[in-house]
Amino acid sequence: MIRVKTYISHSSIHGIGLFAGEPIPKGSVIWGFDEPLDQRFTPADVAKMTPKMKEFLSRYAYCERGTLVLCGDHARFMNHSPTPTCGNDPTRRFTLALRDIAKDEELTDNYSTMEDSWEPFAGIIEPERME
Rank of each mutant, 00 (worst) to 15 (best):
E115F: 03
M130D: 13
E35V: 13
G17Y: 00
D38E: 07
V29A: 07
T108M: 03
C63T: 02
V29Y: 05
N88S: 13
M114N: 08
E64A: 07
I125P: 04
L57F: 04
G66Q: 05
R3E: 11
A47P: 01
P51Y: 11
I8L: 04
T67S: 06
S117V: 04
H80L: 00
E106N: 10
D45P: 03
T42V: 12
W31V: 06
D89V: 03
L18R: 04
L96Q: 10
F33Y: 14
F121N: 04
M114I: 07
W118Q: 05
Y111G: 06
S117A: 01
S81H: 05
P127G: 09
G32C: 15
P23F: 01
E105R: 11
E131L: 15
G87W: 02
S28M: 00
G32T: 15
V29R: 04
T50R: 06
F121A: 03
I13F: 05
S58L: 01
S12C: 07
I13S: 00
P51Q: 07
E115V: 00
G27A: 13
D109R: 09
G72L: 10
L98N: 12
R129Q: 11
N79M: 09
E22K: 09
G17D: 03
F33M: 10
P127F: 02
I8C: 08
D45L: 05
A20W: 02
E126C: 09
V46I: 13
M114S: 08
T67L: 00
S11C: 07
K103E: 13
K54P: 13
